[in-house]
Design a binder for these strands. Structure first.
Lengths: 238, 238
DNA sequence: CGTCAGCTTGATTACTTTCAATTGTTGTGG
DNA sequence: CCACAACAATTGAAAGTAATCAAGCTGACG
């Protein structure tokens, strides 16, 4: 089944319909070159695309679906460090430093990715100064977010972090048609991993927010009833 | 006084004696070009080189001294996100993204820096693909550290973070001749900012470590009596 | 219908912060 | 040189927050 899907779903890079795609600044020829040796993969929800510590063979460009990037801490506790959605690339950082992957990438729903080999990617980077610049900007942005995240975890309460996490989920997954329901189903445990807390605390906090009519639930999904309150409660001080 | 010192202390880039310097991969001609328009500055201990939120005019290359990079959190609580020492560059990230500086850079002792303007730097980056690669690697490393730091803050106890901080100080500042005394004087408050805790907790933890003969004090400086124990207590799980 | 995993809840414990008071240090002007 | 002000460091006590532990509960699924 996987193989069929692969061939059907993902077009060549020069015909990729993802707008706002990381590689979109490349010329058609370059995109074709990118396509030549790329391999396409399908991952079911929950499957790992690569593991922290694995040696890096290439980078993955997310064609569709969402990916979470997480690191393992003490006693196996997971911390989600970033998300990636269609058009984003993951696993590229390890390529430059000759390091293993620094995080585990997991499919959050059905995910189609293209894998571009290390050699091909580095070749393209070398030939395209503008492309390097794009990479630098990407890294800068990720670094800025990581540092902000650091500050949040260091100084905010669980409640604030949970609200902040809701806002993160909003930017990554967006809303369903009602513009209120977050378009993602997360386990409480995953919610805890995002907010850097325990499942129990995450639950208690979400329930309290529900009591206060700030959020509501629809099955496993979360409805943001009072977006303003979420923002306030997230304690955005800048 | 500042002006005299400036002219005496810092040579042109092509004659810079800092080994392991960020710009050292440039050719002599390029270094000369770098020098042409650079301005040199002296900052006394405690002075700010730039502030978080200021618009970015250029990057700073640390010629001598140590610099701390910190961000302000809720209610003015400071969090140290990184250090820079001679040969390192700071403030470069904002240049690529047309953003203000994302952190405040403060001189930790007497610091001499060269300021390279935004335009000149971007020009050099454009002309040197290899240089971009170096930047990418720098950013990758910083990002890796930031993510590790995030995990530490999220999952470790104060004691572990304090021990970890001691190890960070070791790598940045090194030891005095006795190979035991950390070559840096920090206030308790700064120590707290590094370990992401309060001054009170930092003090209590350091005193407990002293009781346990793991560290000792020599004036304001810290002596690592039992380095192995510090490493163990830092809870390095990877 | 039983089972298993994830969710929820309550009670307890541990850790850390906060607040307040005290001590120590440093620099300054008389 | 001393007194004093200002600030940093320390200490103790109290409060608060969140993690942990230990049950029950629920719902999906064979």
């Amino acid at each position: 089944v996987g193989y069929e899907k692969k061939n059907i779903v993902i077009p060549d890079c020069d015909k990729c319909t993802n707008t706002d795609q990381f590689f979109c600044s490349l010329s058609v020829d370059e995109k074709k070159k990118l396509s030549e040796r790329k391999s396409q993969n399908f991952f079911k929800k929950g499957q790992a695309i690569f593991y922290e510590g694995n040696s890096a063979v290439g980078l993955y460009c997310v064609h569709s679906g969402k990916v979470k990037l997480s690191k393992l801490g003490r006693e196996g506790k997971e911390q989600i460090v970033r998300f990636a959605k269609s058009g984003d690339i993951v696993g590229y950082r390890a390529l430059f430093c000759n390091e293993p992957y620094q995080a585990t990438a997991t499919a959050m729903d059905d995910v189609y990715v293209c894998m571009i080999s290390r050699e091909r990617f580095l070749q393209i980077v070398e030939e395209n100064p503008k492309f390097s610049l794009k990479l630098i900007q990407l890294l800068s942005g990720d670094l800025r977010m990581a540092e902000k995240h650091l500050l949040d975890v260091a100084q905010k309460t669980v409640r604030e972090r949970v609200c902040e996490s809701l806002l993160v989920l909003e930017t990554i997954f967006g809303y369903e048609e009602d513009k209120k329901t977050l378009n993602v189903s997360l386990s409480r445990s995953e919610m805890a991993d995002i907010a850097a807390t325990t499942p129990e605390s995450a639950i208690r906090t979400l329930l309290k927010l529900k009591e206060e009519k700030i959020i509501a639930f629809s099955g496993k999904k979360i409805i943001i009833s009072n977006r303003k309150a979420v923002i306030t409660e997230a304690g955005v001080y800048d």
